[in-house]
Each structure stands twice: as structure tokens, then as C-alpha cells.
Amino acid sequence: MLITTPNLTRPDETYAALIATHEGLSEAESHALNARLILILMNHIGDDAVLTEAMRLARDKGGQAA
């Protein structure tokens, strides 16, 4: 079951860290970093059903298109 309720322990800090991770990278390098990050997080989650649900939600822009 995909968690869509607030779940980040430190939302502001984590988001700032995500932006900081991309600092100094070209757009192409940033896209590549995002790709690696997605794969690492996918493995952490592991569950195919949860991931499929997350992909659907991302494709629907968080549910707007539904």
C-alpha cells in the first residue's frame, strides 16, 4: 500500500538536501542523478504493487488527471 499521507520525518531539510544534491550539475547530469536516485529508492521500497501505484500517481500528476 503506497503511503500518500505525510511521512517525511524532516520535510524541509530533506527537500533542501534533494535540491543541494543537484548543485553544480548540468541538466544532463541532473537527469542522470535523478535516474540513479529513482532506482535506489525503488530497490528500498521493493514491493512491485507499491511501485506500480507510485508510477501511476506520478503519471497522473499526483491524481489531478484521475
Binding site: H31, A32, A35, R36, I38, L39, I40, N43
Partner: peptide, 20 residues
């Protein structure tokens, strides 16, 4: 291609990526 190459980049050090 970007996602594929990301898998290959990670595969050298992270065993999980080898499964992909």
C-alpha cells in the same frame, strides 16, 4: 537510455542493480 545507463552505473557497486 538514461534509465538503462543509470542501472549500469549502479551495477558495479550495488548488487541490487545487477538484478535489473
Amino acid at each position: 537510455k538514461m534509465l538503462r545507463n543509470a542501472v549500469l552505473e549502479l551495477a558495479e557497486t550495488l548488487p541490487f542493480a545487477r538484478t535489473v
